Simulated assay, not measured.
Amino acid sequence: MGFPVIRNRRLRGSAAVRNLVRETQLTVHDLIYPLFAVPGTGIKHEIPSMPGVFHLSLDLLDAELDEIVKLGIQGVLLFGVPEHKDETGTSACHDHGIVQEATRHIKKRYPQLLVIADTCLCQFTSHGHCGVVKFNDALQQAEVANDESLELLAETAVSQARAGADIIAPSNMMDGFVHAIRTALDEAGYTHVPIMSYSVKYASAFYGPFRDAAHSAPQFGDRRTYQMDPANAREALREAEADVIEGADFLMVKPALAYMDIIRTLKEHFDLPVVAYNVSAEYSMVKAAAANGWINEKSIVLEMLTGMKRAGADIILTYFAKDVARWLRDTE
């Protein structure tokens, strides 16, 4: 008679026992909530493809901030949707641009709330690309001018830090963007401001609703020349390693849900905090299915975000942050 296989069923009995032996804990301190600030007054417009997420003018931002802080969420990822767009996205680096004004507003009301400033040009350019676009006569096509874009991105990062941003989060995927921004921040005296790099950003179909939110859909072509092929994993290591060498303080994987293996890979290879961006379509799909009564939204979301933590994410950027904070509080 052989020995029985021990499967630890005794550790799966009561809820109390399961809580004691749980390997992965999701807490409110893991969460960052994205915000979309817009110019004007009296504006609170729900984004059609993202139920519960709004464009907010600064005068209506306070109620949102009060709720975020009350729920125990410690930081926001700040996006700005400007009135003025041009071919080079000049309003991105203006000291009175929407991100800069929103940052000052937030820090005045809640100095302790972390402001993570998205640093990109796509929502500020008339063409919707993440950098300066030039026409290549030889190829007879438009191309993003990498080095010229870096100059504007670095200038934008410094203006955001000057406005009070705690963390700079460049999402543009230009070659050398971390080095350019780190150098500019250091030279301007912002050596203490860390960079949360969008190190591994795939050319994904999961961004659709965000482009509705940020009014940043490309007016021609696509972003595959500077975002990663979803089929590539080893490339993610090269991209992340380059950012580590250039001075990144956080490494982000975007999107999260279809790239759990990439989150795990970065966690195993680097000692920097790993950030997972639970992006717009990941949010909208769950909201749509829940609205139709097809799924239990709370259970799905908690399982999904716990999976991201289990894969190795130290921080999760998610539009579900407020919902999750309420659910976690109610179970305490």
Rank of each mutant, 00 (worst) to 15 (best):
D186H: 09
P170F: 05
F270L: 12
A233P: 00
V5I: 15
K134G: 05
P51S: 10
L121D: 03
I106S: 09
D137I: 14
M173W: 04
I262T: 15
Q112V: 04
I106C: 11
K322C: 01
A188T: 12
T318N: 05
M308D: 07
L113K: 10
Q219P: 00
I245C: 06
G176T: 05
H269I: 00
Y226L: 11
D175S: 05
H179D: 15
Q123H: 12
V133W: 01
E101P: 04
M304S: 14
E23N: 09
A16S: 15
T306I: 00
M285A: 13
V324Y: 01
L317F: 15
T88L: 01
T331G: 05
N8T: 13
D330N: 12
R12I: 05
D314S: 14
D59Y: 06
R238M: 14
L305I: 06
M260N: 04
V324D: 01
A15W: 07
Y283Q: 11
A214Y: 01
I300P: 04
V53R: 01
E282F: 03
D330F: 13
I106R: 12
A321P: 05
F250V: 01
A203T: 05
K309C: 10
H105A: 15
L71C: 13
K201S: 13
K134P: 02
T27Q: 11
L272R: 09
L26S: 07
M196D: 03
I263Q: 02
G42C: 08
A321R: 00
T125W: 09
L185N: 07
L302F: 08
K309Q: 11
L61H: 06
A15E: 14
N292L: 13
V158I: 10
W294P: 02
L114D: 13
K70L: 11
R104L: 09
S216Q: 04
A248G: 10
V301E: 06
N296W: 07
Q140N: 14
P209M: 10
A92H: 00
K309P: 06
M173C: 08
L11A: 15
K309S: 11
A184M: 07
D59A: 05
V274D: 01
D62I: 13
E67L: 10
G131V: 09
V115N: 07
I167E: 02
G293T: 08
C122D: 12
H45P: 00
T183Y: 08
S199M: 07
H55C: 02
N296Y: 06
E241L: 12
G208R: 02
L305R: 03
A291S: 15
G40I: 06
H269A: 15
F36H: 03
P111L: 13
M196W: 09
R223P: 01
A117K: 01
N232I: 01
G40C: 04
